[in-house]
Design a protein around this nucleic acid. Structure first.
Lengths: 114, 114
DNA sequence: GCTTGACTTGGAGTACGCTCCAGGTTTTAT
DNA sequence: ATAAAACCTGGAGCGTACTCCAAGTCAAGC
């Protein structure tokens, strides 16, 4: 699969895919004899997971840390789990915060009732 | 109250307060004879509300729109209510999205179980 | 009275995460 | 065979939201 198709299937732009590779968020892609990137289907799962991390506001630096640990493999298992557990706490806190604000917003809107 | 005290009490930096005034998010503050800003307590409620909007990811442009409508007063009542209702939908959507990701994260972490 | 700290302004600089450009090569469709 | 579309690289530029700097004025404590 070439970069254009991966862009379509992943929802990211080709520019973004190259950028992610450059910074190390995506593994260096195999190039064909022409020099064009040739992706395997399996990259899609990783990109989707990165998207979840991004949606939940994980900064790129932290994703990068996770990506590096993942590249090392088994010995980093516990560290990866810890990283995700810490992140899960951020997400839980964020949801609670948004819910509090939602309640306040409800009250504010009620004050605008006709 | 001078800007340093407002900074402490609001949790924003003095730089940020000046920046907010410059772009129109805070009303132009009265200056004493020395030229120093002299704030009224009442500004704290507005800053707190702006904080809620920020926490819920409202972009500054939109806060600015709300601030402008508010400055006009009564005739913009419905437009302000609409703006907040639209924003409330964003917040609800965002909470749902985070909850979905949280479930996926739980599953991922479960996969790291010893 | 004088030093230290807080305040003023206009404008420059920063961090993050992309997003695009230039100039060139390769692939694909006709 | 050729033209259009897609790809490559290194590096520049952009949008958002601050954050800080320089140079100067003002205020408060000793």
């Amino acid at each position: 699969m070439k970069i254009g198709e991966l862009a379509k299937r992943s929802g990211l732009g080709a520019h973004t895919l190259r950028y992610y590779e450059r910074i190390g968020l995506l593994p260096y892609a195999a190039r064909g004899q022409s020099g064009n990137r040739d992706y395997d289907e399996s990259i899609l799962g990783w990109i989707e997971f990165l998207g979840r991390l991004k949606t939940t506001e994980m900064p790129i630096r932290t994703m990068l840390r996770y990506a590096e640990l993942r590249a090392v493999g088994e010995p980093t298992r516990n560290e990866r789990r810890d990283l995700l557990e810490t992140h899960r706490e951020h997400v839980r806190t964020r949801i609670a915060e948004l819910q509090t604000c939602l309640t306040i917003l409800d009250a504010k809107i009620a004050g605008y009732a006709d």
